[in-house]
């Protein structure tokens, strides 16, 4: 895997509008374009799904009442399928139980049609920020993962033991190696992981571990 320090700039952030009503799609995309935000329109949830990948930047502006699969179910499906795009809901009538449900499921905002420009732009900004943070996190994880992948199996063993706080001597005993060899491996690990200090290395190790357990 190649190193990618920050992907927020290499792709334009886009608002993906999913609404079955063409006039809403046109209106919202026109407004977003006018304020300089990239927008893409889809009439159906399926159309969006076919196009989307987690590597893409942006947020989803979703009509809560979609023909076929409803907006709420679609959000649920996105979540279970592991898509991490932030979702803003739009609906024609405020239905409190529905609002509660989608907000609980992680929606950024719930807009009641017709909405004001600021409401929309604030929501989009918030969603973008959340998406950016997501991608940043992902980029960091990816880069750590890439560095870990460059370690030899022995070096990885040494790194795991260092990370849980064992001394060189203890590691040497466990692996039936001399302390000098361990020191050599350890230096190699620090260099490959680009860790400035022991604390840095431990942090990286923890991050990747929590992500892994989280992914599970």
């Amino acid at each position: 895997m190649t190193e990618r320090p920050d992907t927020s700039m290499d792709q334009r952030e886009t608002v993906f509008i999913v609404d079955d009503d063409a006039s809403i799609r046109e209106g919202v995309s026109n407004l977003l374009e006018a304020v300089g935000i990239n927008a893409k329109c889809y009439a159906t949830a399926e159309g969006f799904s076919a196009h989307w990948s987690n590597a893409m930047a942006g947020c989803l502006l979703l009509d809560a009442r979609l023909p076929g699969i409803g907006g709420v179910e679609f959000q649920e499906r996105l979540r279970t399928s592991g898509a991490q795009i932030p979702v803003i809901f739009m609906t024609a009538h405020g239905d409190i139980p529905m609002v509660r449900k989608v907000m609980k499921a992680g929606a950024v905002e719930f807009l009641t049609k017709p909405f004001q420009k600021e409401e929309l732009l604030n929501a989009v900004e918030q969603a973008f920020a959340s998406d950016r943070a997501r991608r940043m996190e992902k980029a960091i994880l990816d880069s750590i993962q890439a560095r870990i992948d460059s370690l030899t199996p022995r070096e990885r063993e040494v790194m795991d033991m260092v990370a849980i706080g064992l001394t060189n001597k203890e590691i040497a005993e466990r692996l039936y190696l001399s302390v000098v060899t361990i020191k050599l491996h350890r230096g190699q690990v620090m260099r490959k992981m680009q860790a400035e200090s022991l604390a840095d290395l431990v942090k990286m190790s923890e991050k990747i571990n929590t992500h892994r357990s989280g992914a599970k």
Binding site: D21, I24, L31, A34, A92, K113
Partner: peptide, 14 residues
């Protein structure tokens, strides 16, 4: 609500 929303957003865009 649908055309109304479109009108409002178009007006802002305009």
């Amino acid at each position: 609500n649908q055309p109304l929303t479109a009108v409002v957003t178009h007006a802002y865009a305009c």
